[in-house]
Nucleic acid binder design. Structure first.
Length: 352
DNA sequence: CTCCCGGGGT
DNA sequence: ACCCCGGGAG
């Protein structure tokens, strides 16, 4: 209970120093235990034009989200003792001398037999997937949000990126109808938007979310989109996956990997990610993101998403992956393990 | 974890 | 007739 209160009061510091505490503790002891891998957080508190009121109500909102999504992980893993024992300011000083996450992503590099190591042959596998992808033409290539509104001025382009991350394929139709600015969407009839984005899943909800988002952008961000992860997460219908995508592509400010179900699935099949301290599969995209970020060099963080999404759409499909045509199947621990006949249990043994 | 919603597959 | 897919919300 005091933990929760404490974390609330210190919410501004919490993102910064919780991650640090963990590293401080993790490195010298090098247990293969926990690593709070919130590597995307540290760069957070950048100022945001439309966000002056950050010190006011919006941080409360952030806290709510953070409490839900993060408190479980940080406050749970970090005991009261640890929080009380260390002063945030000291943490900040010591932290600056710590290596960047990438620097000890390859454990040996720092001289620790660190439990977080890049999986063997990952570069070969990645290169193989790139090669397969260069031949295939996956849906993601034609309708990914990466090039949304590339011809627009920055502010409009960012809004287009945000909108297209929601709508993917239907974005062109909105464009054709001049509905890619916050004002236009705010004024447009919700039913109109609904019809325009129709084939997209959840189109009713997305239409209403889009209108709400447009309004928020107008009111709070001067027609731009939020420039922080936290701000994006506050938008209705925007969760971690979309928020990271928009940060990466819209702001070119890489704070984390955009992990969707394809990335989640494929990383687990390849054995690239695992639950902390175990070899078990990760059970959620967020967990996958954390695990993947621990070793994948940051230069790859943006490209990994379209790469694996396309791979997942064409080769490494959710059901009946086409291991036969996959050129890296010999390096994949899961190759040919998921039977193509529905009769034999499609579910894999969960744990062991 | 379940639910949302609708299209598509089996 | 189911069941699966998706990202977020609760």
């Amino acid at each position: 209970m005091s933990v929760a209160l404490l974390s609330l009061r210190n919410a501004t510091f919490l993102p910064l120093f919780t991650a640090r505490i963990v590293y401080l503790k993790a490195i010298p002891k090098m247990p293969q235990t926990r690593f709070s891998s919130k590597t995307q957080i540290p760069t957070s508190l950048q100022q945001n034009p439309g966000d002056e009121n950050d010190s006011g109500s919006s941080t409360a909102g952030i806290r709510v989200y953070l409490r839900k999504k993060r408190a479980k992980k940080t406050v749970e893993t970090i005991t009261t003792k640890e929080i009380k024992a260390e002063e945030p300011q000291q943490q900040a000083v010591q932290l600056s001398s710590l290596p960047d996450i990438e620097d000890f992503a390859y454990g040996k590099k720092c001289g620790y037999s660190y439990s977080i190591q890049a999986p063997e042959n990952w570069e070969i596998v990645l290169q193989g997937i790139r090669k397969m992808r260069s031949c295939e033409d996956a849906p993601v290539d034609s309708m990914g949000c990466e090039k949304a509104g590339s011809s627009l001025p920055p502010k409009e382009r960012r809004f287009a990126v945000l909108a297209s991350s929601l709508l993917s394929s239907a974005i062109q139709r909105l464009l054709q109808n001049g509905l890619l600015t916050p004002d236009a969407i705010d004024k447009a009839d919700e039913a109109t938007i609904k019809d325009l984005i129709y084939p997209v899943g959840f189109y009713t909800r997305k239409a209403s979310n889009l209108k709400k988002i447009a309004k928020i952008c107008l009111l709070k961000y001067d027609g731009d989109i939020p420039s922080t992860l936290e701000g994006l997460l506050l938008l209705p219908g925007i969760g971690p996956k979309m928020a990271h995508l928009v940060m990466n592509v819209g702001w070119e400010n890489v704070q984390g990997i955009c992990v969707d179900t394809h990335v989640h699935r494929i990383c687990n099949r390849l054995g690239w990610v695992s639950r902390r301290g175990t070899k078990q599969k990760t059970s959620s995209p967020e967990e996958t993101r954390e695990s993947l970020q621990l070793w994948l060099p940051k230069e790859e963080w943006v490209a990994i998403n379209p790469l694996l999404v396309g791979f997942g759409q064409t080769v490494c499909t959710p059901l009946r992956p086409r291991c036969g045509i996959c050129t890296v199947s010999d390096l994949c621990p899961s190759a040919f393990k998921e039977s193509s006949s529905p009769s034999s249990t499609p579910k894999k043994p969960r744990s062991k």
